[in-house]
Amino acid sequence: MFIQTSFLGEMAINEEEVLTFGSGIPGFADFKRYMIVPLEDSPFYYVQSVEEGSLVFVAVSPFDFFPEYSFTLPEHAMKELGEPTFENVRVLNLATVKDNVQHATVNLAAPIVWNTASRAAAQVILQDTAYTTRHRLFPLSPVEAKEEI
């Protein structure tokens, strides 16, 4: 199967690699099937809708930027993901990249989690967490840090 995407052009879809979000991604509940596409030579990924070629998110592995990142999956998420083992869980977080990648932020309060065995996925909204929706991926330059004071 092939789809036409806004950013990646025509893309071959391997059904065995498609993630299914049972509840969709918040704000996009009608679209439930996505591919994870790594961007070469980069820590970034596209989370590309298989159902809507213009719907794509940018994501990163939180552990590349925040090695101490951790959370406990709520029971409802464990059920939605099919009770995955620790070894079968993968995590990405959505990033916001505007004009300059050096100013990119990441949403650590709502990770995308999937079960590699079942390909079931969910965006989990963490409760009672210190994580926010806008953590900087890269430190401020000395000039930017001085301007923020």
Rank of each mutant, 00 (worst) to 15 (best):
16 E>W: 01
100 N>W: 01
142 P>T: 12
4 Q>Y: 01
135 H>D: 09
74 P>C: 07
60 V>P: 01
70 S>P: 05
149 I>S: 15
46 Y>F: 03
124 V>E: 05
61 S>Y: 00
80 E>T: 13
57 F>D: 04
113 V>F: 01
103 H>G: 11
55 L>P: 05
146 K>C: 09
32 K>N: 08
56 V>E: 02
99 D>L: 14
24 G>L: 05
59 A>Y: 02
17 E>S: 14
64 D>V: 08
57 F>Q: 06
41 D>E: 14
55 L>M: 13
142 P>F: 09
80 E>K: 12
114 W>G: 04
101 V>I: 15
17 E>N: 15
62 P>D: 01
132 T>C: 13
146 K>W: 06
131 Y>C: 09
43 P>F: 01
17 E>R: 11
139 P>I: 06
149 I>F: 04
8 L>D: 00
60 V>Y: 00
88 N>I: 07
115 N>R: 13
146 K>L: 12
86 F>W: 04
12 A>E: 11
128 D>T: 11
7 F>K: 15
48 Q>Y: 00
118 S>K: 11
62 P>Y: 00
68 E>T: 15
62 P>G: 04
61 S>W: 00
74 P>F: 02
13 I>G: 04
15 E>D: 14
134 R>E: 08
94 L>A: 11
40 E>K: 15
33 R>G: 04
35 M>I: 03
22 G>K: 10
52 E>D: 14
50 V>N: 02
24 G>Q: 02
64 D>P: 11
